[in-house]
């Protein structure tokens, strides 16, 4: 049997091997909510910046702990800074939360299919986000709002668990007042002092201002939320080939070689994470697939 020779021969030249992480330094840590935070990263190596498309993800490695897929949450037009927004729920993301300015992370990516950047540029876009699902959509919002002159209306429907768990409150305010985003926020539960909407995000869909005959919908959140969102969007008359969703599955390699993220015939890491709904609508109702 071919076994690994004991004496490790090592190479330090940063190559192009997608299995080898590139080093990034934590520039800033921002606590977004109780359990969600954003890391702003800068490349440690010689770099022309981190080019990516909205909706893509990176495999993020914390030294000695492990590696997880995390969507990129920054502005695609600001390639010098790489942003990841995530919840601290597993060993790796909990270790990420302990990182401070100057600490180093390994990054492999960007991987995966993006939101339909070209298709939506001149159209009305209705974005439906649930919880942390707003993070992979933020690059798309930046992108759309930067094309203010050419684009159609952009509507965001965003559901969070409680008012304290609303992400990017500062940006939401700015997008609304300065860049013309029509944002509607709702929470699942709130105390009496909350002035906004209460109810699941799907309840915003029937009254949202968009033209179903031409709008494109981008949806990201827990799978159950996406299923019900698609149902409501369909009731309004958006056809399934103008609805896009972003899926989550276990991923180890990020490039279609490990088999973990299979979803029927698809590899979520390379055929997704963004899928046009009509591609996957037959798979969505199947259990444990």
């Amino acid at each position: 049997m071919a076994t690994e020779s004991e004496g490790l021969k090592l190479r330090n030249a940063p190559g192009t091997d997608p299995m080898r992480p590139a080093l990034f330094e934590v520039h800033r840590v921002r606590q977004e909510t109780r359990d969600t935070f954003t890391l702003e990263l800068r490349s440690r190596g010689p770099s022309d910046g981190f080019q990516f498309l909205p909706g893509q993800f990176n495999m993020v490695y914390v030294f000695g702990v492990g590696e997880v897929p995390i969507s990129i949450s920054g502005d695609p037009n600001r390639p010098n800074a790489l942003f990841h927004t995530t919840r601290a729920v597993g060993a790796v993301t909990k270790a990420m939360r302990r990182l401070r300015r100057g600490d180093v992370l390994g990054i492999r990516g960007p991987f995966g299919a993006s939101w339909p950047v070209n298709e939506v540029s001149a159209r009305e876009v209705i974005i439906v986000a649930g919880g942390i699902g707003l993070a992979p959509l933020r690059p798309m919002i930046y992108q759309l709002l930067s094309q203010r002159d050419q684009r159609g209306r952009v509507v965001l429907l965003y559901g969070a668990r409680t008012p304290d768990e609303i992400l990017f409150t500062h940006e939401l305010q700015q997008w609304r007042t300065q860049l013309g985003l029509e944002a509607f926020v709702t929470v699942d539960r709130a105390h009496g002092d909350w002035q906004g909407n209460v109810g699941v995000v799907t309840t915003l869909i029937p009254k949202a201002p968009f033209d179903p005959s031409q709008a494109v919908a981008l949806v990201c959140g827990p799978e159950v939320m996406m299923r019900f969102t698609v149902m409501e969007l369909s009731k309004r008359g958006i056809s399934k080939n103008r609805i896009y969703i972003s899926m989550e599955r276990n991923m180890k390699c990020g490039i279609g070689l490990c088999g973990h993220c299979q979803f029927g015939p698809y590899y979520v890491c390379k055929d997704g994470p963004v899928f046009r709904y009509d591609q996957v609508q037959d798979l969505i109702p199947l259990r444990e697939i």
Partner: peptide, 15 residues
């Protein structure tokens, strides 16, 4: 239906 979704606490438990 909306209340049932609310009960799931969609964003809290990794549903």
């Amino acid at each position: 239906a909306a209340t049932r979704l609310q009960l799931l606490d969609l964003y809290g438990n990794g549903i």
